[in-house]
């Protein structure tokens, strides 16, 4: 049995990873909360964001954190266009159709990346890539700590946007009462696309914060998809706070699972949580029971 000298750093490490997961899940939960659709292309879009950050860095020498000014807005535009042009027209009254179309999109994005960027795994080199920060006696990678703080800030910004702006009010009105919101003159298609764009922009933020401590290849998104879904169902579909807490829980579970069961089996814990939560608490751990 590993003692606390291993467990504590492991938990802290899990928490920082969990912050990153939360960031990815925030976008997913935002999209779900407003549009009530599950975006299966979420992982693929994150991968696209990571490539954007990567190429900005190697081609133009732009620091990943500086790319925060470029990548999220670009991702926002992409998300807006995708929702307006494709996803918004796909349902034909069945939510599985959205899942299928976003699956199709993720296949397209992943394999185009494979074609253009090849399957090589790439990393960026920044002056701070290997810096560490000491917290409670544990040495944590500096980029992960930044990402953790970034996740909290992003969640706070999203919350501010939702509660204090006209767009946020329109989004919430539409999420709650579609017909009524349209009656008072909210352009549903536009607001839906804005929400989807915001969700994808979150991925842009995640990509910028993630890359310094991570890598990118065409398959990298797949690993995040089910994890992000797990976090979203754990935290309650559509809940920001839930996504944050869910992300941290999953990060810790993964770290401890890896510690006790080994890397590969540790992942099973995540999927089992996902299955059990969906079966027994479909509204999330913190939501009311259905």
């Amino acid at each position: 049995m590993p003692d606390s000298a291993i467990i504590i750093p492991s938990v802290l490490n899990g928490l920082t990873t969990g912050g990153l997961y939360a960031l990815v899940a925030l976008g997913l939960t935002l999209i779900y909360g407003v549009l009530h659709i599950i975006n299966f292309a979420h992982g693929a879009l994150l991968m696209l964001g990571l490539y954007a950050v990567y190429f900005l860095n190697v081609q133009f020498g732009i620091d990943p954190y500086l790319a925060l000014l470029i990548v999220p807005p670009a991702m926002f535009a992409l998300g807006y266009a995708l929702q307006r042009g494709i996803i918004g027209r796909a349902s034909h009254g069945r939510d599985e159709n959205i899942l299928l179309v976003t699956l199709g999109l993720s296949i397209i994005i992943e394999n185009l990346s494979l074609y253009f960027f090849r399957s090589d795994t790439r990393t960026v080199d920044t002056p701070y890539s290997f810096d560490v920060v000491e917290i409670f006696g544990a040495f944590l990678p500096y980029p992960k700590v930044v990402a953790f703080v970034g996740a909290l800030v992003t969640a706070a910004l999203l919350w501010l946007l939702m509660s204090h702006t006209d767009l946020g009010r329109a989004i919430r009105a539409l999420a709650k009462e579609r017909k009524g919101a349209q009656l008072v003159g909210i352009n549903a298609d536009h607001v839906f696309a804005m929400s989807f764009g915001l969700g994808v922009a979150c991925l842009g933020v995640a990509a910028c914060l993630l890359l310094p401590s991570y890598y990118v290849n065409p398959q990298v998104g797949g690993g995040f998809v089910l994890i992000a879904f797990t976090i979203v169902v754990l935290g309650g579909m559509g809940s920001f706070v839930g996504a944050l807490i869910g992300g941290l829980i999953i990060g810790v579970v993964e770290a401890l699972g890896g510690l006790f069961l080994g890397e590969s089996l540790g992942q099973i814990g995540i999927f089992l949580i996902f299955i059990l939560v969906l079966i027994f608490r479909p509204n999330g751990l913190f939501g009311a029971k259905a």
Binding site: I86, R89, A90, H92, N97, L100, V101, L103, G104, L105, S106, I107, I108, E110, N111, L112, S113, L114, Y115, R118, S119, P218
Partner: peptide, 22 residues
């Protein structure tokens, strides 16, 4: 035999079918 291209086609087909030929 470009890597991924036939899969890209599959993805496009999936989107097109669900969208236009359910």
């Amino acid at each position: 035999d470009a890597p991924g291209i036939s899969l890209v086609l599959y993805g496009v087909l999936l989107v097109v079918m669900v969208l236009f030929v359910p």
